[in-house]
Design a protein around this nucleic acid. Structure first.
Lengths: 162, 162
DNA sequence: GTTCATGCAAACAATTTGCAAAATA
DNA sequence: TATTTTGCAAATTGTTTGCATGAAC
C-alpha cells in the first residue's frame, strides 16, 4: 500500500505535480476500493470521511490528473457518470467487463483476451493499439438462475389457474 | 431507403407508436448519415434543416425510443455525449471501433471478432451475452505516417543545429 | 374525445471554471 | 516569493421533465 502510494507520488513529481494531503487521501480511497468502479461522487463521499474539508472540485481535478498520468482509467458505462479504475503496474488494463442488464452488477475478467486480435489490427489495418476496452452486456449467472425459478413458479401458477 | 423506413415504421407500430413527421425526419437523418456516429445535438441540427420547427426534446425522445426498440444503438465514447448508431437488420451490432487518440478519427470494423469469446463466457462464466462493445484506442495508419515524417524532419533539423 | 406526441421552458445532474485565499517548494 | 493547489460558488453542458397545445385515430 505505502509502496504504491510512493510510486504514485513519484509519478506526480516527475511531471511537476505534488502529492498534497487531499490528493493522497483520494489515492488512498482508490486503493482501498480497488475492486469497485467508483464515480467521482463516490470517491468524494469516501474521502470526506477522512478529510471533511475537501471539496468536490478538488476530487474531480485529482481524478482528471490521475487519468492523464495513466494512474487511473476513466470509464464510462453509459449511465451518465464517469467511473475511475486504478490501473495496474503496466499502465495498460487487461481486463474486461461483464455487465448484467438485469441487476446492474458488474464482474471483471482479469485476463487479456485480445492479444491475437491486436496483432491482426496491426497487420491488417496498420493501426497501433495503445489500449482497448471490451464490455459485454448480458444476463449474469445469478439472474439467470432467478429467472429460471420465476419461470417454474409461473408454470405452477398457470396450472393452479386451470 | 424507403424500404428501411417502412420497416422501422412497422417496428414502431407493432409497439403502439406512430411514425410522426418529426420521427420520420429524424430517422431519415440517421439513414443519410449512417456511417457517422451522430450525437443528439448533431441529429437535431441536421433535422432542423428539413423541419425547422422541431424541438431538441423531441429529438432526444425519438432517439431514446429508437434505442429501446433496438433500431439504434446508444454509444458512449467517453467524451460526455451520447452517440447514436443505426443497427443492422439483425438487431445486434457486429462491429468494432478503432479510435485514433491523435486525430480523433474513428474507423469501423464491420466484422464480429468475438464469437469464440462469447462462447467461452457462456461456458466458463455462465454469462449469457446479449451484446458487446469493443473499442481500440491507438494511432491510426494516417497519423503514424505523419509521425514518421515529422521524426525525419526533426532529425534533419538536429543535424542542421550541429 | 381520448390518447399520443410535440414544443417550449424550466429543471436536473455531472462536471468545469474563476478567483481569492492557503499551502508548498 | 513565486508557483501550485485548494475550496467555494457560479457557470456550463448534456439530458430530462412538466405542462399546455396540437394532431391522429
Amino acid at each position: 500500500m505505502e509502496a504504491r502510494i510512493e510510486k504514485i507520488k513519484q509519478q506526480l513529481q516527475s511531471q511537476g505535480y505534488k502529492l498534497t494531503p487531499q490528493r493522497e487521501a483520494t489515492v488512498r480511497v482508490l486503493l482501498e476500493n480497488e475492486e469497485d468502479h467508483l464515480s467521482a461522487e463516490d470517491v468524494f463521499m469516501l474521502v470526506k470521511e477522512k478529510a471533511p474539508e475537501i471539496g468536490l472540485a478538488t476530487v474531480y481535478r485529482t481524478l482528471e490528473l490521475l487519468n492523464e498520468l495513466h494512474v487511473v482509467e476513466k470509464l464510462n458505462f453509459g449511465d451518465g457518470v464517469a467511473r475511475y479504475d486504478l490501473r495496474g503496474d503496466n499502465n495498460k488494463h487487461h481486463h474486461h467487463h461483464l455487465i448484467c442488464v438485469q441487476c446492474g452488477s458488474m464482474q471483471e475478467i482479469q485476463e487479456d483476451w485480445l492479444g491475437p486480435l491486436e496483432e491482426r489490427l496491426e497487420q491488417e489495418f496498420h493501426f497501433t493499439v495503445i489500449d482497448h476496452r471490451l464490455d459485454f452486456q448480458g444476463i449474469c449467472k445469478h439472474c439467470r438462475e432467478k429467472e429460471r425459478e420465476r419461470e417454474q413458479q409461473a408454470q405452477k401458477d398457470d396450472n393452479a389457474d386451470v
